[in-house]
Design a protein around this nucleic acid. Structure first.
Lengths: 160, 160
DNA sequence: ATAGCTGCAAACGCTTTGCCTCGAA
DNA sequence: TTCGAGGCAAAGCGTTTGCAGCTAT
């Protein structure tokens, strides 16, 4: 039975993975748990510093790296040179559509996709290991009137 | 009528784009024209230097950047920190499957794919601009029998 | 007590750039 | 002649790391 502690979701995972919970780590874990976008290290550092000023970028770098190795975090590369991070969502594979005008990220699912790629790899004589897919687009101005129901499954969109 | 000069294919394009054809540029253009893989700058520099030692890396960097802006070259990112380049093939869109064991790249086409992604973007309220897709796989040992018969339909595979 | 963390600053790997010379057009 | 191009070395940028001092456990 999991004790309903005061730890953030990711802090919990850190504990389960036997990581030492220092003050800095706890703060970074909280920031990550609260994030519903895809922050880069600089942004994580900014948010963490706001909660506790005694944190250095080096620690943020070391932490995201460690959490990625533990499978708690996933590193993304949307171009632009900086790595972006998001909490691992087991099972729920999703992809990203980046707005070329403002960098905002919209997630989307496409269950058939991986299966399709798996078959392509197969055909070429390879065992599928993983894939990377990013869509880049420009937001289309909403159609004239108000016709469509706003059902665009945009879960996360607060990226810079 | 295009004069059948001694210039390499890419050198031709440079001329058509009004670029000054210096010795260095001509050499780099030739290296790029002859390449049937996806070399990074270091590799291009190595190959170019072998043909003409008075070339600096800075020039290679400046040249690939310029050619990319002109649409003559396309930059790829297969992970690993370094940009890879290949000549633009108008019309023939293709994707890449990277062998996680040795980095070798196999190209493949998938005409339906872009259309599929175009529809996804559409559905999310975006106009499709571009996409990035990379497959990572491990070479599957050929069926039983014979130990190793290298017959995979790999057009380009000399990547490191 | 001690393995694991952290801060700081230096180092790193890839890429860009300032400056001044050179050469294609 | 002139403006683009090249060489060299320094700088830039995101990220990693060595070292020495802390701190959860």
């Amino acid at each position: 039975m999991k004790s309903q502690s005061t730890e953030s979701r990711i802090a919990q995972l850190c504990i389960e993975h036997g990581l030492k919970m220092t003050g800095q780590r706890r703060v970074i874990a909280r920031v990550l748990s609260d994030a519903d976008d895809h922050p880069d290290v600089e942004e994580l550092y900014r948010r963490a510093s706001a909660l506790d000023s005694r944190i250095s970028v080096a620690t943020v770098y070391r932490t995201v790296r460690l959490l990625e190795e533990k499978g708690i975090l996933e590193r993304r590369d949307f171009g632009g040179g900086r790595a972006r991070y998001e909490a691992t969502e087991h099972g729920r594979h999703h992809y990203h559509l980046i707005d070329v005008d403002n960098g905002k990220v919209t997630e989307f699912e496409d269950p058939e996709h991986e299966e399709l790629m798996r078959r392509v790899a197969e055909r070429l004589g390879f065992d599928f290991v993983s894939m990377r897919l990013e869509l880049f687009g420009k937001k289309r101005p909403p159609a004239p009137q108000d016709s469509k129901t706003p059902q665009a499954s945009k879960r996360k969109g607060a990226d810079s």
